[in-house]
Design a protein around this nucleic acid. Sequence first.
DNA 1: AGAGCGCGCCTTTTT
DNA 2: GGCGCGCTCT
Length: 771
Amino acid sequence: MSDQQTSSYLDSLNDVQRQAVTTTDGPVLVVAGPGSGKTRVLTFRIAYIIEQGTAPWKILALTFTNKAAREMKERIEKVVGKRASYIWAGTFHSLFARILRVEAQHIGYPSNFTIYDTDDTKSLLGSIIREMNLDKQVYQANAIKNRISSAKSSLITPKLYEKNEELLAQDKMANMPLVHKIYAAYVARCKQAGAMDFDDLLFRLYELLQNHPEVVQKYREKFKYVLVDEFQDTNTLQYAIIKRLVQYPNSPRNICVVGDDAQSIYAFRGATIQNILDFENDFGQHGIKTFKLEQNYRSTENIVNTANAVISYNKRQIQKEIWSDKGVGDKIRVIKAVDDNEEGRRVADTILEQKNRYHLQNSDIAILYRTNSQSRIFEEYLRRFNIAYRVYGGLSFYQRKEVKDLISYLRMVVNPNDEEAFRRSINHPKRGIGGTSLAKVTDLARQQNITLFEALKHVALPKRTRHAADGYIHIIQEAQSKVDTANAYELADLIAKGSGLTDLLRNDKSIEGMGRLENHEALLDGIKSFVEEDTVIDTDTLPDKSLATYLQNIALLTDFDSNEENQNGDVVTLMSVHAAKGLEYKSIFVVGLEEKLFPSWMSMDSMEGLDEERRLFYVAITRAELYLTLSYANTRYRYGKMVMNEPSRFLAEVPADAVESTSTNPRSADHEYDKVARQREHRARVTGIAPRTRRGTARFAAPKVDPATFEPSPASEVETGRKVLHLKFGEGKVLNVDGGSDNRIATIHFSDLPQPEKRIMLKFAKLQVLD
DNA sequence: AGAGCGCGCCTTTTT
DNA sequence: GGCGCGCTCT
């Protein structure tokens, strides 16, 4: 790459940023305030390392969300080109899962292991608690899940737990002395099922690196540069893994961590800002360099000063001075509403007003709340005001019941040991295998130490039930027999029809039922587009379109990630403050600023809890570029009961001179609107049909090309220079074809796309050669 | 074995 | 105010 290009992006940085980018060797700590260009530093740093001659696949960049990773890769690609796709950039969970699949045999797991999500974990814990004859009111699956999760995050195995007086005492206090037994059983059952939960993806990797010198050696040699984003949100376990990778004799210790103690908001998940302090100790004697990014390029002075004032109420923090030169800006507006309905209406009303007055797009605006359940009321009023919106978080697409039902069958096909998938699919659709039969199956499985699926094959059952069981076994095995030849969509289609799931949903004519069918079909569409149109992403691992690969891909997706291609609509964003981290909007509404809600009642009994809530408020405020509106309601409905709320203490911490003095409440909504709204509300109450929310709708793009006239050509005809048509991406020109004869990959330029260049596997893609 | 009904829990935040 | 689970009746 030319010096010119190098200097052009380095020139766009300020002094500290540039030093943070070019100090590539040895340990580096970057303390980055909000809006200080942290992502720019990270991406330019990686680009710079590549330009200095390091191969992209020797760089490991760890983030917390897929979105952050994707954004980083895209921005690096703009500087260094397609080489960027070889960088190991991704979330802790997804990259570690990738390594674990390769190394699975070392730890006695199949490489096709299942990833248990939160529901699977809770359900398995429920089974264990039931089998141990414990009172589930006392032993709550959720609480135990958290105990186990934090044990794993602190590197405590069941064996260590059993010997840990402090943990045992805590459990006794909570009247749950047998948690350690449940923990041990849970780990054993996961292993037996060939499954890992989210924490296992970290913990098992840690154990792998700990116990297998040749494996840790391999990855130490592989990763010459390690970068960690949002370091303040790492937990002990994550930091332990990082250290394992970079702390060894004669290591260059090329590690760069970027974080902001003021934005640490995941302590509840075991994250600890202690890691930042420890980092300075752990790497202190190896010439650690610290850079503080203190200039905020995002927000007006009013917003930055408010944020500074608020965070100063926290005791422990790394000293820094965040400043802005973007001008004073508008004052902060506070909306005081009598109840949650009025809050919803006034926020929607203010959004309209801002759109008019400042010429804002919907996409310039976000509403942030403490708990996902608060979204409903805003959805309602935005809909009434005809403002397009999108809700992030809450139930993700892949957590919907009807989606999980089909996926549980697919999981059985890939990993028949998967206990939770078995339990979920065995009697849904109903085929007459209820509790009694299942108990027989479970008994046999325990007796002979075989999986539930194996036990089902051999257990003695009444004739009718046997027949039903054979039907279930047949459909799973039929799919299994094709697993090596059929792609994910062919198998999913076979299962959807063969299991009776599609028919079951088709026969449900209720409104909810139709929504479920829609989601079921959206899932199948999604699998289809995975098979037909997916581009090459993981160049490192074997790219293929198998069901196993599909399941691996979706296991770690959140609501955020499932629809990046076509979410560019002009919509107002609604999400929790946690989900908003790293994002920015011209106008931000932080709502529900009430005691017991924000700060949450759960964290109000401790200083640490309150400090974390305050950091959360800090994160919320600092998302705003130009306009910040805070709102609260005196009363709101909770569990259908009206509760009174004091305004949040955080409101009192906002400097008075930053707030609009004339409390210019937005004029109350006009009467015409109110009348319509009331009528609609009345109708909803009478019919019992709630207005449909937008959450349940399908999110997969319609093809740009008319499928009726589309005629795919044989892959062999796709050659460099050819003009081709792609169902989803439209017309494109083949720039290059590489890869072996069996695995040809074409680089195609689609002029209609924001990111025109796609790498497409010819084996699966359907392309029509035009000339 | 399944349908129907009532009870109780729920709401922090996420990979 | 809604959902899931378990109990009861068929």
